[in-house]
């Protein structure tokens, strides 16, 4: 059980699952980050324990303290070693989840307070309000734009988040291993209805891609998308 990290709270043992939980990943990118998190948690728990034990031990009788061993040995070299390891892992996973190589491109356009998505269909781009269609089992690059304030595109089970910034276009890679419906939300505070800016990602079986049942709409043309700046 991966929730063992929180085993101190038996009540919540089963509670790590959820449609928005980063701890129940549904694709390789979210999975990479989840593994990274469990590794970080294990390391952090050990380090915290070390410090707490050292503090507890100080309540004994006075001892000789080699100053340099504490300040430089523990303080500098030990922590630098741990941090270097962490940084290396961070860079490695960071490069893995970057949008390298070819991928299907879809668009996510945010405004107060809704999302418009589009994906390439058989007869041109398909547009949908609040629902993003993607094929399962292959990487998808979401091109994220906004026409008013800053929003943030986030589907916790499929990958990290990326801001939608007016005047810019950002690219985020996501991937769903299996077909299904995944929940997403706006993560950056964007005004009154920020909380209701939810959406869905439907991952289709690759055999059924592009899905035929969806209505075909004219190419996406909100003003800010048309003048979307250099990628």
């Amino acid at each position: 059980m991966k929730c063992a990290g929180f085993a101190t709270v038996p009540l919540l043992l089963a509670g790590c699952k959820g449609p928005l939980s980063t701890l129940s990943p549904a694709g390789p990118i979210a999975q990479d980050i989840a593994w990274l998190w469990w590794a970080l948690l294990a390391g952090a728990a050990l380090l915290a324990l070390l410090v707490f034990v050292l503090v507890a031990l100080s309540f004994g009788r006075p001892r000789e303290v080699p100053e340099k061993r504490w300040t430089f040995g523990l303080g500098v070299w030990f922590s630098l070693a741990v941090l270097t390891l962490t940084l290396a892992a961070a860079l490695w996973v960071g490069e893995r989840i970057l949008p390298h190589g070819p991928a299907l491109e879809v668009h996510a356009h945010a405004r107060q307070w809704s999302w418009t998505f589009s994906h390439p269909g058989a007869q041109g781009p398909n547009e949908a309000e609040g629902v993003l269609h993607i094929p399962a089992g292959q990487p998808v690059d979401v091109l994220i734009t906004s026409s008013d304030v800053i929003h943030s595109f986030w589907v916790p089970q499929l990958g990290g988040k990326m801001d939608a910034i007016p005047g810019r276009q950002n690219r985020l890679r996501i991937e769903a291993t299996r077909p299904g419906t995944y929940e997403g939300l706006c993560a950056e505070f964007c005004g009154l209805e920020h909380a209701s800016m939810r959406f869905e990602v439907i991952a289709h079986d690759p055999a059924d891609w592009p899905p035929a049942s969806l209505p075909v709409s004219p190419p996406l043309s909100p003003p800010a998308l048309m003048e979307a700046p250099r990628p």
Partner: peptide, 12 residues
């Protein structure tokens, strides 16, 4: 400066 050796430099 160590990441200069490995990290992807610009937006992809």
């Amino acid at each position: 400066m160590a990441p200069v050796l490995v990290a992807t430099s610009c937006r992809v």
